[in-house]
Design a protein around this nucleic acid. Structure first.
Lengths: 335, 335
DNA sequence: TTGTATGCGTTATCAT
DNA sequence: ATGATAACGCATACAA
């Protein structure tokens, strides 16, 4: 970066550094004439106040960090979209960190942010945390933190979540009312509260309708497609379920592939419902019934919460926002 | 950010600031004993060298900026995934900017980066540029720039692209060999060379097989779903095409919706091929034949190129890399 | 091996 | 309304 600096600019204009600075800081004690002259000349020379110098003085970066498990996932990319919209409106910049659900990466990314690179963090955590409390030092450092969707219960901070329990109860009820009596549940991570809530909604709905449940119906899945395929396939062969509740989008996709391979018809033989932010769910074969979270809006709310904390415009730094997901019924559970 | 600084740390350890600094900079002229003592104590106190101060001295940020039209698009999110992987390996951080294909935003974002916030830019441009040369000042400022996929021809710099012309020729040939004689082309932006190339591949394939072409067969689309729906629908009603070449994923989706609504069977009455990075293309109804770009790899290559320029490890700052897309034939063009 | 002093580019404070 | 100066936190050249 070959840049001119404030000193050189001052010399060329026969002014002092302070006057230049004032022109950029929108100070009132500067004549509008000189101000305009400065700004015009600066523009011509492509001068801009050096970010590091300004921020060293001001002790802020105007950056926010967004830490998420993955980006090639409709939920997260939509959420990031929402975050970026708010941030750019406020003149802030967005740093992206992808953990691939690896806890070590998550920790290392967060630790890398203590040096002033970012003023705050928006995060959806990896589920494999061994020590969730490492985030508590953020609080000591007065670095604002907002969770969205996936947070740690042990870390008190602002959160944006959805009505996972209720909507899962409702989704399971929908499957039952559509005739399912043998519904398997595809789980990704039982440590995170959102997944606990989803599962509990399922369990309680089964209970309400007096439908038998046993542990085999809970299928543990992971991040790898092949593993998931094997696990779900095994459950299919053994249990012959007539309904599938996928707690996460990609497990529904795996289920579709498996049903194809096993020549099982969705929805005739198996009904499938899934948490999913896939916009083209109507174009799948068959169209997938989804529990759709307001991903974009969650991003907007999370960013809004963060800025409230950042700009000290709140007296409740641990504000909790819960938004409603909605079930969109399509052919994968009807007919 | 309530942080301890180097001075305080030095006092507590009865050492000088420089020694502390040396411990962190991995200098050789420091005893490993004091170095360890410093690092251990620093860790305990959560001390990290202030990013702005270090970078003010070093005149670099260890940030790279990624500017793309949108993130809720499989191609871009996969590319960003690739970029982030490389950047994090190199100890760099990724700033994300979304232009929504708005040229003014693009310009304003780039202009916001002249102040040292980022050391380099990876960009896929908006197509609506009125003055593409505004990027040339990046070169004056010695700010490295790499285009991927969508670049401006008027701006000489490193680029990562795919074999758009050849693959489009091949894709069109595939449609023709599958029996199509009336293939419409869905265009998003005729100003960008990648889209020109795609279109030219289509045109030349028609020519080779002596298939008639007229301007009506070129359907101009935009960013808005409803507009696109209307435009494509109009073409369907008027031209009754038996083939559709979508130059961009979302236009294929629009085509699917339209065929549904018009009760046209894909592939019996209409065959559809599209540029697309959708991983679940096999699950669509019918499975979509795609021209798939190596999005992740493009991100990796773009980042690699940028770092070569950044670290001055190349004598060709305008290196061009062309990767191959591949056509994956599925039911939307067969049967 | 460690300490001292200077400057990186800004901006706020104080003076004029 | 404008100018001089100190300080933000760090890293290097130089001194010891």
């Amino acid at each position: 970066m070959d840049s001119i600096n404030i000193k050189e600019l001052a010399q060329k204009l026969n002014l002092s550094k302070s006057t230049i600075s004032r022109a950029f800081r929108d100070h009132n004690d500067i004549s509008s004439k000189t101000k305009e002259r400065i700004l015009a000349f600066a523009k011509e020379l492509n001068y801009q106040p050096n970010h590091h110098a300004s921020n060293l003085r001001a002790q802020k970066s105007k950056n926010i960090a967004v830490i998420v498990p993955e980006i090639t996932n409709n939920f997260f990319s939509q959420a990031i979209d929402g975050i970026e919209k708010v941030a750019s409106e406020k003149g802030y910049h967005v740093l992206i960190y992808l953990t691939s659900d690896c806890f070590e990466k998550e920790v290392s990314y967060v630790n890398d942010l203590y040096n002033g690179r970012a003023d705050g963090i928006i995060m959806s955590v990896s589920g494999d945390a061994t020590d969730q409390t490492y985030l508590n030092k953020l609080r000591e450092k007065k670095m604002p933190l907002v969770f969205f969707d996936r947070g740690y219960d042990t870390v008190p901070t602002a959160k944006v979540t959805t009505n996972d329990y209720e909507i899962s109860f409702e989704a399971t009820t929908h499957l039952i009312k559509s005739g399912c009596r043998n519904i398997i549940y595809l789980m990704v991570n039982e440590n995170l509260s959102i997944f606990k809530n989803r599962f509990q909604g399922y369990i309680d709905a089964l209970k309400k309708f007096n439908i038998n449940y046993n542990d085999e119906m809970l299928v543990y899945c992971g991040h790898n497609f092949d593993e998931n395929y094997t696990a779900i396939n095994k459950a299919f062969v053994k249990l012959r379920p007539d309904g599938v509740f996928a707690s996460v989008e990609r497990l529904a996709f795996a289920t579709y592939y498996i049903c194809n391979d096993l020549k099982l018809s969705i929805p005739k033989q198996v009904k499938v419902i899934s948490f999913s932010s896939l916009e083209i769910a109507p174009l799948l074969n068959p169209p997938l019934t989804t529990i759709t979270q307001p991903a974009f809006e969650m991003g907007v709310q999370a960013a809004t919460l963060l800025f409230k904390k950042l700009l000290k415009k709140t007296d409740n730094p641990d504000e909790q926002i819960m938004l409603n997901s909605k079930i969109i019924i399509r052919s994968s559970t009807t007919g």
